[in-house]
Write a protein that binds this DNA or RNA. Structure first.
Length: 370
DNA sequence: GTCATCAGC
DNA sequence: CACGCTGATGACA
């Protein structure tokens, strides 16, 4: 992969220099901004930022931004993953050993360093190839992946006690389609893929406290339409509006918010006179109980799973946690019991007012299992 | 040491 | 200004 990417990069560098009329350090955002905004005089969308979505918008004006985006994609892939990971193989064990930090993330999630194994690419097909290099160490062993389905939305349903949202999960409905059906005022069977995509962005955006501005940027629509969509959303799920109001009230009164098991995050600025600080504090307050409770759920599941595997004298190893996903390597003769055990412990780690669903897969590599 | 960028959830 | 939580990389001061 490294040499294939090298070939692509060389071609891109040549074409970038030609389009720019000069050679420069493409990795320097300052030098790049010089070329884009001073020499080529392209419009400055967000000051002199050269961030991905700025370059995407500049694509219609010039060929250069497109090449820069390609260059960055391959450069990131090569430097951060393809070339870096093999260097970290431990000589004695033949494995790469990450470190999981338990006391870094303010929400109670784990974090992973040296290397970070929680940000291995998956979103684009090319980058996803990297996952083919992670496989079980022994012959006759495979990778098992199990991940929670929309666990944060389910936790929000539980917290908010929103009748519609809870009913939707209990009936096994497609939650993004259901949201789309209401927002776009069409029967659920007539929801188009594009509408579902929009609704998915809205469902996640709300959990992160996104406002009309961010929502309109994300969806590429006017702010007015984003306002209408958000209003329609809270009309459909009034319990969520109530959850947000109650949570913010708590943050203002008690100066903290907390997860389902009682992990607290201090929130000092929920009543700040400074609008920016207040808004930031509000978003943290809304998100932490949800993200943190999801983290607690998978931690309880991991403990229960490990305990059970020891009790049964299994050889399977739990090797990674990626926030809502667990990865195992297992010998073939443990497959049947492992799948049952893991799905059961994950789905029943906590008692909520909505069902918890776990998806899973098996394969020779991480790529094939997930 | 900080910032911008971009990889994941 | 403008979406929560992270970590790695490279540039720059």
């Amino acid at each position: 992969m490294s040499s294939e990417i090298d070939t692509k990069l060389e071609g891109l560098i040549t074409s970038i220099y030609k389009l720019s009329g000069t050679e420069f350090n493409i990795n320097s955002t300052q030098q790049l901004a010089n070329i884009l905004f001073d020499i080529l005089e392209l419009p400055q969308i967000k000051k002199r930022s050269t961030a991905e979505n700025v370059l995407k918008q500049l694509q219609e004006h010039h060929e250069l931004p497109k090449r820069i985006l390609e260059y960055r994609k391959y450069n990131k892939l090569k430097n951060t993953y393809v070339d870096a990971l093999p260097e970290l193989i431990n000589e004695k064990t033949g494995r790469i050993h990450t470190t999981f930090n338990q006391t870094i993330a303010a929400t109670g999630r784990l974090s992973s360093t040296n290397p970070n194994f929680q940000n291995i690419p998956i979103r684009t097909d090319e980058a996803r190839e990297i996952r083919k290099s992670f496989r079980a160490q022994k012959d006759g062993w495979k990778i098992f992946s199990a991940d929670y389905s929309q666990v944060e939305l389910r936790i929000m349903a539980h917290f908010s006690r929103d009748k519609g949202l809870i009913a939707a999960f209990q009936n096994g409905e497609d939650i993004h389609s259901r949201t789309a059906s209401h927002v776009f005022n069409v029967p659920i069977d007539l929801v188009l893929p594009e509408m579902r995509r929009t609704a998915k962005v809205v469902n996640f955006g709300i959990m992160y406290g996104a406002g009309p501005f961010r929502m309109s940027q994300e969806l590429g629509i006017p702010r007015k339409e984003a306002v209408a969509i958000i209003e329609s959303y809270f009309e459909q799920y009034p319990g969520i509006q109530n959850y947000i109001d109650t949570t913010l009230e708590k943050a203002r009164n008690k100066k903290y918010v907390e997860t389902i098991l009682g992990r607290r995050r201090p929130v000092w600025d929920a009543d700040s006179d400074n609008g920016l600080r207040r808004k930031t504090a509000e978003r943290m307050a809304i998100n932490m109980p949800i993200q943190g409770s999801a983290a607690e759920m998978i931690k309880l599941a991991m403990i229960a799973i490990q305990k059970e595997m020891i009790k049964r004298g299994m050889k399977t190893k739990l090797i990674l946690q990626i926030h809502d996903e667990l990865l195992f390597e297992f010998p073939n003769d443990e497959e049947e019991i492992l799948v049952k055990l893991v799905v059961d412990k994950m789905e029943n780690a906590m008692e909520l007012s909505v069902p918890i669903i776990v998806d899973h897969g098996i394969g020779e590599t991480w790529y094939d299992a997930h």
